[in-house]
């Protein structure tokens, strides 16, 4: 009995240890960024563009912030609808079909493609073949391809999480699958689907490789023109750091990027809580 008790305590300690380790890693990253990037952070930093020579040695990150948000918005606009529809097909309509297995496999493969490869594909398809050039649109669409599997998988899990008895009960009344989907299943899965969209947005905001070859510029205005290059937080950070322009501003940019991701992920978590409470 004592031996079992001891074993239980050992496992408990291991679980706590693993949890604390994750907190420690996240805490270390955040503190490092706060200490090194905190001093750069100011209202000016968020509301002005980069200045000085070389560019970025002083000034702020406003065009990068706008660029990242625009890229995220385009990626989501492009990928959300097909992603959710694919998930709906997989869960609600493709139950016994072979196509379901093929789609599942394809989505898994897409999720495994390195982001730089997605970037090169985006370059070939959008920049060159479609003639968009290095632009906000080409970058946003490339990011859309990158986040598509994330949206499919999270939306699929949200739909699978809906009480299966709702389907059985609804359909046994003689209503169509489409009616059941619109009135019961989708509203129930909505918080989970939205939470997945936010996670995908965070993934797109942090990705550097795909936009390096399709959208990002060292310097660009924030006109919002779809067919011109844009600045973006991760690429700006990469340039500031790799070209030794300003380490302080690089950390400041990294801090803003991480805070943006934390905001997105916390909102996603909050949405998931709503879903759990409603269930």
């Amino acid at each position: 009995m004592n031996w079992r008790h001891g074993q239980d305590r050992l496992w408990l300690a291991a679980f706590w240890g693993a949890g604390l380790l994750i907190l420690l890693i996240l805490g270390s990253i955040l503190s490092c960024l706060l200490i090194k990037g905190g001093p750069a952070l100011s209202l000016d930093f968020l509301t002005t563009g980069p200045k000085g020579t070389p560019l970025g040695i002083s000034g702020g990150i406003l065009p990068c912030l706008k660029g990242t948000i625009s890229l995220m918005a385009i990626a989501l606009t492009a990928a959300a609808f097909p992603g959710i529809v694919t998930a709906v097909y997989l869960v609600e309509f493709g139950e016994h079909s072979r196509l379901k297995n093929i789609i599942n496999l394809t989505v898994q493969c897409m999720a495994g493609i390195p982001s730089i490869v997605t970037g090169l594909f985006g370059y070939a398809l959008f920049v060159v073949y479609s003639g968009f050039g290095i632009s906000l649109l080409a970058g946003g669409l490339s990011l859309g391809i990158m986040v598509f599997p994330v949206i499919v998988v999270t939306a699929r899990d949200a739909l699978l999480g809906v009480n299966p008895l709702y389907r059985l009960t609804g359909l046994s009344l003689g209503v169509s699958r489409r009616y059941l989907l619109v009135r019961v299943i989708l509203p129930q899965a909505l918080p989970g689907i939205l939470s997945g969209l936010l996670l995908a947005a965070g993934y797109a905001a942090g990705a550097t490789a795909p936009i390096m070859v399709t959208a990002a510029a060292i310097s660009a205005g924030s006109s919002g023109n779809l067919f011109t290059p844009v600045m973006a937080l991760p690429y700006h950070l990469y340039i500031l750091f790799s070209q030794h322009i300003s380490l302080e501003n690089a950390y400041g940019t990294a801090l803003v990027l991480v805070l943006l991701l934390l905001l997105l992920n916390t909102t996603a978590l909050w949405l998931r809580r709503i879903k759990e409470k409603g269930a």
Partner: peptide, 20 residues
């Protein structure tokens, strides 16, 4: 099948309230 399901109702063992 929905045509017949409407004519022949089925109540299950577990009481299910739709989320409405």
């Amino acid at each position: 099948p929905s045509v017949i399901r409407r004519k022949i109702g089925l109540v299950f063992q577990t009481p299910v309230a739709l989320p409405l």
